[in-house]
Simulated scan of single mutants.
Amino acid sequence: MRPWREENLTAAGLGTLAGKVTAATTRPLAEAVTTGLTGSSDGTLHDSIANMFSSAAAVAGGAIGGLVAGKGSASVSALTGAAAAVAIEQYNDSAYRGKEAEQKEEDEEKKFEYRCSRSFGF
């Protein structure tokens, strides 16, 4: 396995930063476009399409950041930045969806407990 070279690490670092900034900046636009496409602002389809747009923005920002930071091959630097940025973006989206699902489950349990206490008087 070939060790990472300094310019690859720089491209990955700046690419990740640029990708995150780009994805975070464009997320409200991605949400609005997705709501227009799906007709809903909630649901798996909506979330998947919005995450696709955010990932695309992260790739673009990461490629530009990698290209700017890299000292070696431009294509390697751009790909390194893009890969690092999209990996982080997808990880963050996945973690966010996991927290959202946990919260929804907790809310459902509380509603169930409330209904039981109202129905059975305890």
Rank of each mutant, 00 (worst) to 15 (best):
G98S: 15
T38W: 10
K111L: 10
T10C: 06
T35Q: 12
S41Q: 01
V21T: 08
Y114Q: 15
P3R: 15
T35N: 09
A56R: 02
E108M: 07
A83G: 03
V59Q: 01
E100S: 14
G39Q: 02
L37C: 03
L37S: 04
N8Q: 09
L14A: 01
L17F: 10
T22I: 03
T26A: 10
T38K: 07
K71F: 06
T25L: 15
A83H: 00
G65S: 03
C116K: 10
T34G: 05
G61H: 06
S77G: 11
H46L: 02
R115T: 11
E102L: 08
G81Q: 02
G13M: 13
R115V: 10
Q103A: 14
G15V: 03
E100R: 07
R2C: 07
E105C: 05
T34N: 08
M52V: 14
K111M: 12
E105Q: 12
K111C: 03
N92H: 02
V21Q: 04
R97Y: 14
S41G: 13
E89A: 11
A74T: 01
L79K: 00
G98T: 13
S94I: 11
L14G: 01
G61L: 03
A23G: 01
A32L: 15
S77F: 03
E31H: 04
E109W: 09
I88W: 14
L29I: 15
A82D: 04
N92Y: 11
A87P: 04
R118L: 15
R115K: 13
F53Y: 06
L45N: 06
I49R: 03
